[in-house]
């Protein structure tokens, strides 16, 4: 599934969200949906451990990750979701990060 998921990311069908999880920007097949869900489950499990280790709420840790992924892991042409709930496609300019990213 990794190949299919990478392709979906590259084509902007799925993308990183400000809340630290991957989201579905455009309608995708069942396999891609399952792959995104499986990825998010693994992220949530890892975030749960990290949040406890850093003594913060799970959502806070997840949001911190979200800032980093938006800041430097979204390539031009790929989709991303800001807290306003609007999916955008990254162009050459850097993403306008949510306020709490600092």
């Amino acid at each position: 599934q990794d190949a299919a998921l990478s392709a979906a990311i590259a084509s902007g069908q799925v993308g990183e969200q400000a809340d630290g999880y991957m989201g579905i920007a455009k309608p995708v097949g069942g396999d891609i949906r399952s792959a995104v869900e499986a990825l998010n489950i693994k992220r949530r499990a890892a975030y749960t451990d990290q949040a406890a280790k850093h003594g913060v709420a799970l959502r806070e840790w997840a949001a911190t990750i979200g800032c980093q992924t938006l800041r430097n892991r979204v390539k031009p042409g790929q989709a991303y979701l800001l807290p306003d709930g609007v999916w955008r496609v990254k162009d050459a300019s850097p993403i306008a990060l949510p306020g709490n990213c600092g």
Binding site: V56, A57, E60, A63, T64, C67, N100, G102
Partner: peptide, 10 residues
């Protein structure tokens, strides 16, 4: 979700 939490854990 205070800003300083995010910065601290960046």
């Amino acid at each position: 979700v205070k800003q300083e939490v995010v910065v601290r854990l960046q």
